[in-house]
Amino acid sequence: MNINFEHKQAAHCENGVTSNLFKHYGLSLSEPMIFGIGSGLFFAYLPFLKVNHIPVTTFRPLPGLIFKRAAKRLGFEIKRKRFSNPDKAMLELDKKLEQGIPVGMLVGVYHLTYFPKPYRFHFNAHNLVVYGKEDGNYLISDPIMETPTSLTYKELRRVRYARGVFAPKGHMYWAEKLPEKINLNEAIVRGIVQTAKAMLTIPFPMFGIKGIRYLAGQVRKYPKKLGENMAAQYLGQIVRSQEEIGTGGAGFRFMFAAFLQESSGILKQQSLHDLAMEMTAIGDLWREFAVETARIVKKRSTLENPYDGVADLLLVIAEREKKVFQELRKIKNTNP
């Protein structure tokens, strides 16, 4: 059974799957649009959650949230299911495919055969769409790839049952009901306002702008607390999260700027265009942070106190992002 499914590469897997699935149902939105409407920009530094012995820094909300929010704001009804039994998970997938429904799912990348080796670690929140079965192989639209690909039954089953943090447990999702009428302007505004609120108002020091400041404070202490080698590992991990496959660069800042720019045209609000340009400049600062970190890792930094240097840069970023989000929080839908 083959479904006529149009594959398009995206920077970020969850945006890509969402965008490709919606497109299949006749709603064509760019990747930044999905990202923005789904409030995909975020920041959190979680010192108590360690992966590979290093604290987690994230530039995105929990896996699945972008899709969930975008679907809700655009009026799609989504069904999702997990299975304790892998055989049943595969059987249910086959049933959906036979009904002509493309199915999104969460998988682990460690055993994903077509993934480049340097990116294959135990990360379990990768999204892809299965859109058919041919000679026992599953046809896969993976947004990181330029073209569609395929997996054998065994391979797909294995990645659906990857273990570790965020184990997918066969998690799959599909569109159950399509929207009758879409209010794009409203969806955009709600996406923007929620992003701004998440960055400004979560009352814990690990999240949003506060989280960036908190990280800056921690980074300052790294060399003394951890020793030179481990400090470099910790710092490097921040950049790995910032620039891992799919961020579109600089911890999603450029993608978010693209979203603001596109929205400025749709909502006819010039201020959004200006904020997009400021967000671009902030993205460039994040890149500078990455470059300086790479120097530290290579022991080539020319700064007198390298860790203080990058911490100061983080504070500058926090201050500028704060201003942007304070403006964005006030955005209103002027022609509902």
Partner: peptide, 20 residues
């Protein structure tokens, strides 16, 4: 060779006219 030539990674950037 981090991507092993398997694909190129899309990056968002501004063109000559300041459009993403």
């Amino acid at each position: 060779n981090m991507l092993e030539g398997k694909f190129k990674e899309p990056c968002y950037a501004l063109d000559e006219n300041g459009k993403y």
